[in-house]
């Protein structure tokens, strides 16, 4: 033993209870779940890369045509005034998902898991006769002698909002899941979205994973040294803020190094890229179909009076 070796380092610490008894079980904390969610995001992105590589209908369309076509469909969706037109557009989005080799369950889950939570809560009060007067279809009782309930007009306008959001999200999901990320960025570049914006978005996407891995590692390192889970809320907050600070420092150092790596290879503020895309007959057909669908649904939406 070296004279500098502390005595306690040579004695074993108390480990598992020798009688084999079990302690209290605790579920993961909010921080743990959030970080696991981040890791899960990485897995999902890898899964979406697989989907984008499949031989489906939307995967065959040139990304520029796809961006323009689907954005036009989203704009049209925002303009529809009737639930039937929105439902028809949603049905079309689902048909496109099927034709592109997406699993129906995945597609529905991706959209309907969040729409009711975020949009539904927002529009729920508008269904009530207090906010949207009209014909009560679901009576809820009386308030100072007046009947109170969900009105036909309120439910219709709530349905319009929910379906509009669901359809728009479905179309965005279709675009992002059937197009590899680099090709989507290429498409934005060729559609004259500012080059610097596309470069920054591309790098942000690239480095999210690096920083995500750092956060996961920091948390895992903490967890590996956590002997007793004592639900230390203040300690948890401290860890989150310290991690955020460390991550900020890391992100800053990385950004400086990335800039140096770019300058070292000749970057002078105007990045040139490799993209080269050509339109084929299939792309033109897709664009034509998008125009026909928008015109038909838009016409039908305007013609229907009720």
């Amino acid at each position: 033993m070296s004279p500098a070796t502390p005595g306690w380092l040579l004695r074993p610490e108390t480990g598992l209870c020798p009688c084999g008894c079990l302690g209290k079980r605790r579920k993961g904390s909010y921080v743990e779940k959030t970080i696991e969610g981040g890791a899960d995001l990485l897995r999902r992105v890898m899964f979406t890369d697989d989907v984008a590589a499949r031989d489906g209908l939307l995967q065959r369309v040139d990304p520029r045509v796809k961006v323009l076509g689907l954005v036009a469909l989203i704009v049209a969706t925002a303009c529809f005034r009737h639930l039937s037109a929105l439902m028809a557009m949603y049905a079309l989005a689902s048909a496109l998902a099927l034709a592109s080799g997406l699993s129906v369950a995945f597609f529905l889950r991706r959209v309907w898991l969040f729409v009711p939570v975020f949009t539904g809560i927002v529009v729920l009060p508008t269904t009530c006769s207090f906010l949207t007067p009209g014909t009560i279809v679901v009576p809820l009782g009386t308030w100072f002698g007046s009947p109170v309930g969900l009105t036909n007009q309120g439910l219709t306008s709530a349905g319009l909002v929910v379906f509009r959001v669901a359809t728009s999200i479905s179309l965005v999901v279709l675009l992002t899941i059937t197009t590899p990320w680099p090709r989507l960025l290429d498409a934005l570049r060729s559609l004259h979205v500012p080059r610097m914006f596309v470069l920054v978005v591309g790098m942000a996407y690239r480095y999210i994973f690096l920083l995500l891995a750092s956060v996961t590692e920091m948390y895992t390192a903490r967890k590996a040294r956590t002997v007793v889970d004592s639900r230390d809320v203040a300690g948890g907050r401290g860890f989150v803020s310290a991690s955020a600070g460390a991550l900020f420092g890391k992100a800053h150092a990385t950004s400086e190094e990335v800039h140096q790596a770019m300058v070292a290879r000749g970057y002078r503020g105007n990045a040139r890229t490799l993209h080269r895309m050509r339109l084929g007959p299939f792309d033109l057909l897709f664009a034509l179909m998008a125009v026909v669908v928008i015109a038909s649904l838009f016409g039908a939406d305007r013609l229907v009076r009720v």
Binding site: W181, P182, L185, G202, M203, Y205, R206, Y207, L210, T254, E257, V258, Q260, A261, M262
Partner: peptide, 9 residues
């Protein structure tokens, strides 16, 4: 640090 150098998509 290759992570800093490999920045493209």
């Amino acid at each position: 640090n290759s992570d800093a150098q490999v920045f493209s998509p």
